[in-house]
Design a protein around this nucleic acid. Structure first.
Lengths: 152, 152
DNA sequence: CTGTATCCTGAATGATACTG
DNA sequence: CAGTATCATTCAGGATACAG
């Protein structure tokens, strides 16, 4: 794996993007995927089209308000298409656009990593939590500075 | 590219994880990367170790408080190592752990996608913004329902 | 069924000042 | 240099009611 960090380097001008950090495409995308429901919705729509209430029922805990918001944003970003059928009552179907489909690749890479290393994360967190009350008080006499370099 | 969505499927039991959505490793990871500074810090540390103020200076707009918070979280997750040198004044160096380094791969995948398709996103957003005031009023006589299927 | 309109709370982030 | 402590602000997100 690995040395495909071409993209990463590409978006890192030495003085990182000014306060207009949203200019950074990577952060921009990450922030969207990082909200509470977008990833879940994208993955579901990656399998087949869904209707509004179908998504609502499938994703436990997701409110109507947030589902609408999430879908609208995805639509605005051109990742999802919304099709309305003139039935009574109305039927609306959502599906990934071609652009949206191309996002499944990177998402899968992230998903694979998450699944593979979630145990590590959990372990690290528990270790960190435990380290806040250890008996491991090292010998204070050994605390003497081993190196004292001046910081320029 | 593409059909590597093994991971995605793996974490999608049909009735999506109950309100304890944090159980989902993928969403968990995405939420961290989706905060305002984590991704930026990870990418910088992916190039070489950095000292605290070095990061602070390099990432424009990042406050001391948020840098500390971000680094602590990364440390807690086992993605970043913190090394203190007993100098005067103190010197602290941050570097990726081996686990943290493995995250660079997925991040690169996302970064590559973001760079490649940022223009599409921007275009879609502008189109969506413009579509809110168009003169494209289609012929009302053509508005008749073409299909009226009953929703089950 | 597919939304919109309000209201409300907690978390994320920022600004500022202070410390070892 | 490398933080911590406080306070203020903003915003994502949830609850609820209502509408076409």
């Amino acid at each position: 794996m690995s040395t495909a960090n071409t993209g990463v380097r590409a978006v890192l001008p030495s003085p990182v993007p000014s306060d207009e950090y949203e200019q950074c495409p990577v952060t921009d995308v990450a922030r969207r995927l990082g909200d509470k429901w977008t990833l879940l919705v994208l993955v579901l729509l990656g399998q087949r089209p869904y209707r509004f209430n179908e998504l609502h029922r499938t994703i436990d805990g997701l409110s109507q308000r947030m589902l609408t918001r999430t879908l609208r944003t995805l639509e605005t970003d051109g990742l999802v298409d919304r099709e309305v059928f003139p039935t009574l009552p109305p039927t609306v179907e959502y599906r990934l656009t071609p652009l949206g489909t191309t996002l499944l690749g990177p998402i899968s890479a992230l998903a694979d990593w998450a699944v593979a290393h979630h145990a590590d994360l959990t372990a690290a967190r528990e270790r960190a939590a435990g380290d806040r009350r250890p008996q491991t008080d090292s010998d204070p006499t050994a605390t003497a500075a081993r190196e004292v370099r001046r910081t320029p």
